[in-house]
Simulated assay, not measured.
Amino acid sequence: MKKILVTGSKGQLGSELEVLSKIYTQFQWVFTDREELDLCNLEKLETELNSINPQIIINCAAHTAVDKAESEFELSEVLNHQSVAILAKWSFANDCKFIHVSTDYVFDGTAATALTETAQTNPINVYGQTKLAGEKACLQENPNAIIIRTSWVYSSFGNNFVKTMSRLMQERDSLNVVNDQIGSPTYAADLAQAIMTILTHNNWQAGIYNFSNEGEISWYEFALAIKELGSFNCEISGIPSSAYPTPAKRPQYSLLDKTKIKNTFGVVVPDYKVSLEKCMKIK
């Protein structure tokens, strides 16, 4: 029985993988978060990995607080880059399959069409810079690794845009939401399923893959969909990013092209609204 190590197991994706682990009982699952496996302790990481000795690693851990990352460079650098290098190196040396989760924030947002895996990277914030450094280290240390770039992740677990909007729409009469950042949301349960589809596929093809739900929307349109599905009465207005300054700059356009992951592994990509409805029904 192959052992799967999931890092960052208390996050949205890790939590969804834990749900799926009840179905994929052909694997032995080890779920770790900071308490069980501290990725910031780089000196001890290799010893810890030897002790767990997994045949598959799914790295869901990251410093994902995009605005905080601007003032927490060292933490971002360790979690998003240096620990990834060690995980990748250990995986390669121990014939362990490695799936590393990355982000659309490796792009600068100046594209006008959906981004493929070979599109030019050019991150515009610390989070994106450290995640790109992690990708490069991953492929350098383990050419057999799979990297999955995703975007706008939400889930019934953790804190995210869907939960925040649902709460605010019940508390307030009106809300302003940015309408000039374009992409597609990702339901973490769908991403977890995509990862399991890859792991149970008979053909392991290393490299970078994109995954998000189908659809091309702004955060404002995402909020409107949440309002509609939640039957909220709150007034939603679209505003430009310039009216809502944040410490970290965001890509204006980061829609991901999912053709490669569909064709290579037969991954099914649901429409964003279908998945949003599914998530919002979970209480």
Rank of each mutant, 00 (worst) to 15 (best):
V267T: 06
K258F: 04
K260M: 03
D271C: 00
L256F: 05
P240A: 14
G266Q: 08
R250K: 15
P247S: 14
L229Q: 11
R250M: 10
P240T: 15
G238C: 09
S231A: 12
D271K: 07
P240Y: 14
A248S: 15
Y244E: 02
T264Q: 05
I261C: 10
L256W: 06
G238P: 07
P245T: 09
V267H: 07
K249M: 11
P247W: 04
Y253P: 01
L229P: 00
S241P: 02
L255N: 04
Y244G: 01
S237P: 02
N233G: 10
V269K: 07
E228M: 08
A248R: 12
K258G: 01
S242I: 15
S242M: 14
L255W: 01
N233H: 12
Y253R: 03
I261K: 10
D271W: 06
G230C: 04
V269Q: 07
L256E: 05
Y253E: 01
S242K: 15
I261L: 07
F265P: 08
T246M: 12
V269I: 15
C234A: 07
P251Q: 14
S241W: 13
S241D: 09
K258D: 01
T264L: 08
I226S: 07
S237D: 06
S241R: 15
A225L: 02
V269F: 04
P270H: 13
I239D: 00
K258A: 02
Y244P: 00
G230D: 02
A243Q: 07
G238R: 11
G266D: 11
Q252F: 04
A225F: 00
I236A: 02
G230S: 10
V267G: 07
S241N: 08
P240S: 14
F265G: 11
Q252V: 01
I239Q: 04
K258E: 03
I261F: 10
N233Y: 05
P240C: 14
T259F: 02
P247Q: 10
S241Q: 14
T259M: 00
I239K: 08
G266M: 09
N233W: 11
G266I: 06
S231Y: 10
P245D: 11
F232C: 09
A248C: 13
S231L: 13
I236C: 09
F265K: 08
P245E: 13
A225W: 00
E228I: 06
R250Q: 14
I226A: 07
C234L: 04
I236P: 05
K258L: 02
V268W: 00
S231M: 12
P270Y: 08
P240K: 13
K258N: 09
P245H: 12
P245I: 13
K227C: 12
S231F: 07
A225M: 02
A243N: 13
P245V: 13
D271V: 04
G266A: 08
L255T: 03
K258T: 05
V269A: 12
E228W: 12
Y253L: 03
P251D: 07
I239H: 04
F265M: 12
P247V: 09
K258Y: 02
Q252D: 05
K258S: 01
K249G: 15
I261E: 08
S242V: 14
T264P: 04
V267A: 03
N233D: 14
F232V: 02
S231E: 15
R250V: 05
I261V: 15
N233S: 14
V269P: 11
G230A: 14
Y253N: 05
T246F: 00
Y244D: 06
N263G: 13
E228P: 03
V269G: 13
R250I: 06
T246E: 03
T264S: 15
